[in-house]
């Protein structure tokens, strides 16, 4: 199997130092935080890789580096063989890579422009990447996207505030699909949603993966969600990957204490609860 995404010895260091003058007066050295520390993993095409960990473990930093919102301090990310952060690349080449990766953010309340109509929100990536010619083609593609995520075409004229949290997250997903990416980074896409709505969004993401062959990097702190979403899991702690396995192995026989602790703390409903089909 070919690795579609390769993360190689990725590190990201943030400078938390005080200003120069304050440091001189107090004779303090510079301070750094290693948010991501030498992390390597690979994702196969069409599969989901989940990064789990607590707040501050560096999972969102990796997500932001993976889509190019942040640069790495060292190491690199290869997407289908192309280095996303390669400074030698021309702008056109860069755009071509960027078009293939998209992100779905945690809060559907903060990630949609409240003053834009949904149709506009979905058309923006189409225009940015010049993917459609003319108004009609644009309209057609927007409608197609709305239907793909289970919304109706009349929703294009409405504003984000007219939608519930789950519907807004569908809009975010539709926006991510607009440029026909093959890699989507989902940063806690359901942690702001109710369980019943979470189920709808997770099922939608899985359905889209089956239909479009998408590759996901899934960021979450919820191991129960990971169990039904991910093919492979990496457990992060203080910026380091402490354990990496396929889902069944990791949850069935975790090797590190940290992973065991995470699994143990997940709330459980009784084991013999009824299942509805």
């Amino acid at each position: 199997m070919s690795d579609f995404i390769r993360v190689e010895q990725l590190s990201r260091r943030f400078d938390l130092s005080e200003p120069w003058l304050v440091r001189m007066i107090n004779r303090k050295p510079k301070r750094f935080l290693d948010a991501v520390d030498n992390v390597s993993f690979a994702i196969e095409r069409g599969k989901t890789y989940a990064l789990v960990g607590e707040s501050g473990s560096g999972k969102s930093t990796i997500a932001r580096i993976a889509v190019g919102l942040l640069g790495p301090s060292s190491g690199r990310i290869l997407i289908d063989g192309h280095n996303l952060h390669d400074r030698e690349l021309s702008q056109a080449e860069h755009r071509r890579i960027r078009q293939r990766l998209q992100m779905v953010f945690q809060s559907p309340y903060a990630s949609l422009n409240p003053r834009w109509r949904v149709g506009n929100i979905l058309a923006e990536p189409l225009r940015t990447f010049s993917l459609v010619d003319g108004r009609q083609a644009e309209q057609k593609r927007v409608n197609e996207l709305l239907e793909q995520v289970g919304l109706s075409t009349s929703d294009a004229r409405r504003f984000p505030h007219e939608f519930s949290g789950g519907q807004r997250q569908r809009i975010s997903i539709a926006r991510a699909l607009a440029s026909r990416p093959d890699f989507i980074v989902c940063d806690e896409p359901t942690s702001a949603l109710d369980v019943s709505i979470q189920a709808q969004v997770l099922n939608l993401l899985k359905e889209l993966q089956r239909d479009l062959g998408l590759t996901y990097l899934f960021i979450t702190h919820d191991l129960a969600v990971v169990r039904v979403m991910a093919h492979r899991i990496g457990v992060l702690k203080s910026g380091q990957l402490v354990e990496e396995q396929d889902t069944a192995t990791l949850i069935g026989s975790p090797q590190s204490d940290y992973t065991r602790m995470l699994i143990r703390s997940a709330p459980r409903i009784r084991d013999d609860r009824p299942v509805i089909n």
Partner: peptide, 22 residues
């Protein structure tokens, strides 16, 4: 019933599990 069934569990399920949705 729907609320209980739509809650994912660390105990069981895998990638092919379709979560119950209301």
């Amino acid at each position: 019933k729907g609320l209980i069934a739509s809650t994912p569990s660390v105990e069981y399920g895998d990638i092919s599990t379709e979560l119950f949705q209301i």
